[in-house]
Design a binder for these strands. Sequence first.
DNA 1: CTGAAAGCGCTTACAG
DNA 2: CTGAAAGCGCTTACAG
Lengths: 357, 357
Amino acid sequence: MEGKEDNSLSGVKEIARRANVSLGTVDRVINNRAGVAVKTRNRVNAIIEELNYQPNVLARRLALTSRGTLRLAVLLPDISEETEYWKAPLEGINKADLEIRQYGVQVEHYFFDQNVQSGFAQQVNRIMENTPDGVLITPTFEKESIVLMKFCKKKKIPCVLMNSDIPDQQRLCYIGPELFDSGYLSGQLVHYCLKDGQKAMIVNIAREIESNVAILRKEDGFLAYFREKLSEDQLVHLNMTDTGYAAVAGRLTALLEEHKQIGIIYVTNSRVSLVAQWLESIGRSDIVLIGYDYLDKNLDYLKRGVIDFLLCEKPQEQGYRGVMSLFQYLVFSTTVQDDYLIPIDIVTSANYRYYRN
Amino acid sequence: MEGKEDNSLSGVKEIARRANVSLGTVDRVINNRAGVAVKTRNRVNAIIEELNYQPNVLARRLALTSRGTLRLAVLLPDISEETEYWKAPLEGINKADLEIRQYGVQVEHYFFDQNVQSGFAQQVNRIMENTPDGVLITPTFEKESIVLMKFCKKKKIPCVLMNSDIPDQQRLCYIGPELFDSGYLSGQLVHYCLKDGQKAMIVNIAREIESNVAILRKEDGFLAYFREKLSEDQLVHLNMTDTGYAAVAGRLTALLEEHKQIGIIYVTNSRVSLVAQWLESIGRSDIVLIGYDYLDKNLDYLKRGVIDFLLCEKPQEQGYRGVMSLFQYLVFSTTVQDDYLIPIDIVTSANYRYYRN
DNA sequence: CTGAAAGCGCTTACAG
DNA sequence: CTGAAAGCGCTTACAG
């Protein structure tokens, strides 16, 4: 047992007293600022070590309040009829915004239309003009995203990716699901539900399937499972670039006619509601339906038993964590930030209540 | 647009200036402390409203640092060979502890042996003697828990329940799963996996099944699903109060002999590993096995395909949130705290990686 | 290279 | 009932 001194002093003051220097010098050492004699620096550092000193983040942040605000730029798709999904990440971002506002952080939104690549490019330019202190993006268009990421790298602005990843570029971290495993998991669910003699169908519904990294990765994972544990003979493929209901319903009807043994359908994104609508209209809710995302429309079908499984990747949390990791990095200069792979939740009519937000 | 004045002042200072009172008075009003003339109080409150003033929690907490520490008592089962599970909530509690320590909060642990009711009572007494500022408990033994809860109520100490609930007592909130739905969800999974002509088995393994609220609730939910969508004829029951492997294996072997059609087994707690061990020993990993908890032992079986589904209820998060909700309540005097029903995660060999802690 | 002073926004004795 | 002063632990000009 070491005799603990009556430490009326603590923190920087105690360090200053022991090292026989002023608070200013202690501060310079702690924050690695220039202008301290090596000898002094060493002495102070030794005491810091000895005391196992941990700065009080409250006090630090309070003292910094007077200094300028930190500006975080957030780039993500706007919310449209077609992309209700993006409401969720935005909610998470706003939640984080509210929490850290009082720490002198300010979040600036940049929205783009997912179908307009030039609009994305334009927003990237605006961000670069405004040179924020941190950047959070959904890298929907790879080329322009890389432009921004390179800019950030040069300017030493931390850049966080969300929802889907572009590896091998200098980014602070990626926050989102491991999409391959998401598909693989779907394969597994299909396997559990497949009755004897049945077939499964995989359905991609999107304007640009070939350039949609997310869909391709999920499909890869799904097929990997089939090759491993089942057989591709048991699988029917469908790609729909016409995303209208009539078109989808038409093709599905034809395919079901052709492959009467289809017992399970896996839709690789949130458009699963189109398939649900169709299944319901033909009175075939016995077919197991698996799809994506905790959207009101999808939940309706889930509750009614038309959709059986929804895979969900915590969109709010992605937004929240995206902002918070920038905040942590910039304010508390936390060390290396790790990628955060979001869990892939399996949601059914029996547990969906507990996944609200 | 209102002309915004050059507010060099803000916060309490600005309020004091406008109301023509001192900081002390403003503080009294903000914190509802006595000793302010009604007229003054009203004037100050009006300005607070007008300014839409929000106190800076950083500054508040920093100022309070000098005051005494807040002491939180945490009561939960200790970690033994038999109850590795409780490591997880403890981790969450420790994580919260680390985060809020610098805000002058101190967590005190009280452990008990789940098999010794008198030990639980003893710890309850110790807590009451120490009169902490907040209490977080796992109410394993109902009677003693109620004693503690009543004590808290009288002393106005906030009390949070974790893991299982005792409703209708004055508690700040409950943090844990809705156990009925957990069983119901299991019924649903069984339904999806059940092939034609197969039967399912439900297995309870615990010393005291009849007094184990958690197990009973899950079983209720499970049976409810069967009554609703399947038939009880398709179900075989097994209660094991002898929790040793030999006994379990013996009974299971006999039952499987009797009911050869059993294709799925649902174990209502983390002892699913005993059944997994048996299934593996008799080479029947084709039987679908569903159980509970993200424990190393269970994960091993999950990865090897012996266990198919693990239902998990975020034990770390329960501990973390339990502490944090007390903290929020005591430090920021957040208003009514709501119960937080933890999601029931469905974990398989394809998504378990993302549920680590 | 170093120190003394002022300040971040709030709270608390203490004195009247 | 009210105010002036000191302090929470850290940071930042400014002066030397």
